[in-house]
Structure formats: structure tokens, C-alpha cells
Design a protein around this nucleic acid. Structure first.
Lengths: 113, 113
DNA sequence: AGCTTATATGACAATTCCGTCATATAAAAG
DNA sequence: CTTTTATATGACGGAATTGTCATATAAGCT
């Protein structure tokens, strides 16, 4: 009997790092956070977050590519909806982790290296 | 009575994005993945992953800063231990998400934008 | 059709990040 | 107390990412 594989394979390391890369940007986390209150179109997102429409579009594309949001055209506007199934538990874990093990992250702009 | 706040505050957006930034690099995810098999010192990590010692050190510092690993000097060597409490559930969520919503991440090097 | 509003795309400069080198510190051994 | 082994740190050039601008596409209206 072949021993079970406990470690991820190379391809998954890439996929995982790309997924978290989507969550490693303040604009994208802000957008996700805003969408927790319900679906919004691009104009509403850029207005609410006071960012440019182009910036919103770029980052929404990135989030959609990673399956963290879905989009639906409604006439002239495009509505974005959060993938709550993934995002809510991940954000809860992150929040809990930060309070418990990484409060220092609240007071810095960049990672130590 | 003041309405409850459902959204994260600005500081948390920063902290969350920094935390995920730590998980957005292939070396760091590989290290985490390796440490799932048990604690290892820097030499073992760089040998196992076939990366330079300096590279291992830099990335371990980053992971430690975010509370994702802890370190302990044992004589001449320094042993790193995974923070399983946070990392295991987060990796499980990520894995599940990728299979279900983002299989495309397995076949690309960089995020769409 | 032409005009307006909404969103997406592509390109480019500026910023940030990463890989590597040189070197510093730390502990043990001789 | 010098040498060796193990790890950490700082700096620098190249690579990747980001913010912004110009422009393209898409839908609805007149």
C-alpha cells in the first residue's frame, strides 16, 4: 500500500499563492468588505470606496478571475456579488488570527523581511 | 442604540491584506506546506525545498512576523514550527475554493487583470 | 444612426517586491 | 580566542505589480 500524500503538490502551491495574492491588496480587500453588505455595481463600488472606476474594474476582474466574486450584467450596469461561501470563513479566520497572533500587522504598511 | 458595524475598519483591511500577502508567495507556501510534516530548522528547510539558505531565512522571517510560524533556537540551529491552528483551516478553505471555483488558477503563473 | 452613460481594456511610468551577494551575529568546538 | 557551522541582515539590481491615462466596448436613449 502506497503511503498517503500529506503535502500539496507543486501546482497547488502555485494556485494557493495566486489565490492569496488576490487577497493581498487593500483595494481588493476593501471591495470584498463592501460587498459583504450585498451586491453592488461598479459605479457604486467606486463611489462608496472613493476610488477611480478603472481601479475598481481592474481589481474586480482579478477577484472574478479567482472566483471570489461573480458578475452579472443588468442592462447598462454590471453587478458584482461576493462569493460568501469562501470569503466569509476565510475573513473570519484571518480576523481571528490577527487578533491572536499578529496584532502588529495593524500598525504597519509593509511586511518585515 | 447605535447600529452594529458589519464592515471591517480601515486598519483591518491593511492587516488582512498584509497577512494574505505573506501567503501570496510560492516559496512561503512551500515552506508552510513542508512544515505541515513537522518542525524543521532552516538548513533542513532549504535542503528539502532546494532553495538557498538566505531565501529560506528571508521568507521565514516574513512568516514569523505574521504569526504563521514560530521559531525556537536549539543550540546552533533554529527550529521553525507551523501555526497549525490558523494555517490548516485556511489551507483547507483555499484548496476547496480552488477545486470548486478557481481551477483555472492551477494553469497560470500570474493573475488576470 | 448618433449621443450618453457604464464598464472594460491596454499601455506606460512609478512603485514595490524578490533573488542574490556580501557580511554580520550566534553558538559550539578545538 | 580562533575556527567552523548555522542563521540573519542589509543592500542592490532586475522583475513584477500598481495607479493612471487614453481609449474601446456595450447598452440604452433620442
Amino acid at each position: 500500500m502506497v503511503s498517503q500524500r500529506l503535502t500539496l503538490q507543486k501546482t497547488d502551491v502555485t494556485a494557493v499563492s495566486l489565490l492569496f495574492n488576490a487577497l493581498s491588496n487593500e483595494y481588493r480587500v476593501s471591495i470584498i468588505n463592501l460587498l459583504r453588505t450585498g451586491p453592488k455595481n461598479v459605479g457604486e463600488i467606486s463611489d462608496d470606496l472613493k476610488i477611480e472606476q478603472t481601479m475598481a474594474s481592474h481589481n474586480l476582474k482579478c477577484l472574478a478571475f479567482c472566483g471570489l466574486v461573480t458578475s452579472q450584467r443588468l442592462g447598462k450596469t454590471v453587478e458584482y456579488t461576493l462569493n460568501r461561501e469562501t470569503v466569509e470563513p476565510i475573513l473570519r479566520l484571518a480576523d481571528k488570527h490577527i487578533s491572536k497572533y499578529a496584532v502588529n500587522l495593524r500598525n504597519c504598511k509593509t511586511l518585515e523581511r
